[in-house]
């Protein structure tokens, strides 16, 4: 069973009071996320990532289309019992401490007393706030509030967790911690759906990603698949060879010396690397490494969102 299934999900708003104009925040998004996946929803600001998450949590109503979560209609109470959600830039009741807040939220899942306190303590320890759990939230830094947000999203041990920009406001250590937490969730079998514009996080964490731009899906698939056909050459590193030999064999390639007798050679795609490698070995050189030069996810992202498919008139 798919954890998430979106079918032609569309959200249109109306802008302006006197002269209302339709604005399409999300345009016919169809997606499937399998159980146990870490799925990244990528896109620049205004791409429709947060709208997608709000539609999934039934915080806004779709104009058309359907969304199913864990085989049930999105927004049903049963779904909300089984999922967790971290909103973008979360905000909480200032007068409560993180511990009180989590106990309160645990109560909404029917968990009270010692069990609620145990869960709250465990979640706060998990996000690194165990020591500050009794401090009022109004005294927390932005990064600490973000950690509380992640903790509350996990208070019910969800099967599926939605994280909207989970790295927002975190310092490098915080980001590393959250990455590790997402990996732990994945290892536990929890499906993770997160939105981000930090591509390094998506590249490191996701099984699959979807790239949105101006409310439309512009690419979807495994990160490796999206980048597989985007090899634009090879990086060959050889040693125990002289500059003259390298110049002679790698004609037209970019050559970068990286040691007294060691060179990195950017071989164009038109040149077969096997043949070049044989020639170097015949000259007594040693192979250090041979790697394809791929676009990064960032290159792919920039290219994808720069020219999204034309949107039909609303």
């Amino acid at each position: 069973m798919s954890a998430i299934r979106l079918e032609e999900l569309t959200k249109r708003y109306t802008e302006g009071f006197w002269r209302p104009r339709p604005y399409t925040a999300l345009d016919r998004l169809s997606l499937t996320v399998e159980s146990g996946e870490v799925f990244g929803c990528l896109g620049p600001n205004g791409a429709g990532k947060t709208t997608t998450l709000k539609l999934l949590m039934a915080l806004v109503r779709p104009t058309s289309g359907q969304a199913e979560i864990l085989g049930l209609p999105a927004g049903s109470v049963e779904v909300r019992r089984r999922v967790g959600y971290l909103p973008e830039n979360p905000s909480f009741y200032d007068h409560l401490s993180a511990e009180e807040l989590l106990i309160y939220f645990a109560g909404l899942f029917g968990c009270t007393g010692a069990e609620a306190r145990r869960r709250a303590a465990a979640r706060l320890d998990e996000v690194g706030l165990g020591a500050e759990r009794r401090m009022p939230i109004r005294k927390y830094s932005k990064g600490m509030v973000q950690r509380v947000g992640i903790a509350q999203a996990l208070i019910n041990d969800p099967e599926l967790v939605f994280l909207d920009e989970p790295m927002s406001g975190l310092d490098p250590i915080g980001r590393r911690d959250v990455r590790a937490l997402i990996m732990r969730l994945r290892d536990r079998g929890c499906t993770v759906f997160f939105s981000s514009h930090v591509l390094a996080d998506a590249e490191a964490l996701c099984n699959r990603v979807a790239v949105l731009a101006k409310g439309r899906l512009v690419a979807e698939g495994r990160v490796s698949d999206l980048l597989a056909f985007r090899v634009h050459g090879w990086e060959l590193v050889v040693s125990r060879v002289s500059r003259e030999v390298v110049d002679q064999l790698a004609v037209g390639a970019r050559i970068t010396p990286i040691g007294p007798d060691r060179f990195a050679i950017d071989v164009p795609l038109a040149v077969a690397p096997e043949r070049l490698l044989q020639d170097f070995v015949a000259q007594g050189a040693s192979l250090v490494s041979l790697n394809p030069m791929r676009d990064t996810l960032e290159d792919f992202f920039v290219e994808s969102v720069a020219a999204p498919p034309a949107r039909p008139e609303a």
């Binding site: 109470v77 909300r80 959600y85 909103p87 830039n89 909404l108 019910n156």
Partner: peptide
Amino acid sequence: ERRSIYNLLSKPVT
């Protein structure tokens, strides 16, 4: 306004 409602309505609360 302070968006705390997102946390609340993502719990099993109608």
